[in-house]
Amino acid sequence: MQDKENTTHFGFKQIPTDQKVDAVAQVFHSVAAKYDIMNDLMSGGIHRLWKRHTISQSGVRAGQKVLDIAGGTGDLTAKFSRLVGQSGQVILADINDSMLKVGRDKLANLGVVGNVQYVQANAEELPFPDNTFDCITIAFGLRNVTDKSKALASMQRVLKPGGRLLVLEFSKPETECLSTIYDHYSFRLLPFMGKVIANDAESYRYLAESIRMHPDQETLKGMMEEVGFERVTYQNMTGGIVALHKGFKF
């Protein structure tokens, strides 16, 4: 029997804590090539509206420095690059080298060059000095982190005083009816689409399970406050299927 103190969840399974990073990495190595296509199919394109709203809440302007954690294929980075201009900088950080390569190629094809840097990094141990960034975002990545509190504390450390963190993540539906419909979609249709489009039902089954294991809106708000973020708020979108948490460092 495994010692619960040395295990963590990987979807609905319990695995040794020191194996989770590699397990999650394997999922994203598998899905990287089809990641953007699947995002559009899974959300009906609505993920673009969620990300657009996140950008609108960032307060980012020319000359600032932005960290896009778990930035994957670069949707947020591309928009931040235009906002900060050539006098600013955006760092797209991801723990997975396959996702970074897809993101780098995609942004190069879009002509996003010059003010973007790519860094392979673990959110729990960000390799940046204290008080570096004006804004930090993590979109659909926090639920895959092994120690979420440690990651949030790492983000708080590298954020400048006056800066803000934006966490865009799947969350808990606001009604039982929506939750039932969402469960049916997540555990039946999502793995099926993963099999047909990406030839990988298991990775998309894990992604559905990881959403259910993620802290709910109020719990995540409390976790952010515990590591020092202030004026923490969240906004539900699409009935709570997704929530945007915002916190400041003062």
Rank of each mutant, 00 (worst) to 15 (best):
M99V: 07
G114T: 13
G111W: 06
I136F: 05
K106Y: 14
Q89Y: 02
A121W: 05
Q117R: 11
L107A: 11
I91F: 03
V90A: 04
A93C: 00
A121S: 01
Q86L: 10
K101G: 12
T137W: 06
I136H: 07
K106P: 11
N131K: 13
Q120R: 13
V102I: 14
N109R: 15
Y118I: 10
L100K: 11
V112G: 12
L92C: 10
V119P: 04
T132W: 07
L110S: 10
T132H: 08
Q120S: 09
G111H: 12
Q86P: 01
Q117G: 02
I91T: 12
S87D: 12
D130I: 03
N122K: 02
G88S: 03
D97I: 04
G103M: 00
V113E: 13
S98D: 03
A93T: 02
N96V: 03
F133Q: 01
N122E: 04
T132D: 02
M99C: 05
N96G: 11
C135F: 08
S98I: 09
D105R: 12
V116K: 05
N131T: 12
S87Y: 12
S87M: 13
A123Y: 00
D97A: 13
M99I: 05
A139V: 08
I138L: 12
D105S: 14
I91P: 06
I138D: 07
E125W: 09
F140D: 00
M99A: 04
N115S: 10
P127N: 07
T137F: 09
R104Q: 14
E124Q: 15
V113Q: 13
A123N: 07
V113Y: 05
S87H: 14
R104P: 04
P127S: 08
F133Y: 04
G114E: 13
L92W: 00
I138N: 00
L100G: 07
I91H: 06
V90Y: 06
N96L: 08
L110W: 09
N131G: 11
V102P: 05
A121D: 01
D134Q: 08
D105E: 15
G111V: 14
P129A: 09
F140Q: 06
A123M: 09
V113L: 12
G114S: 11
F128N: 02
T137E: 13
A139H: 08
F133C: 01
L110C: 12
F128Q: 08
N96F: 01
D130A: 05
D105I: 09
L126S: 08
Q117I: 08
G114Q: 14
S87L: 09
I95Q: 11
I95G: 10
S87G: 13
T137D: 11
V119H: 00
M99H: 01
C135P: 06
I95R: 03
L110K: 15
F128W: 08
A93D: 05
F140I: 02
K101F: 13
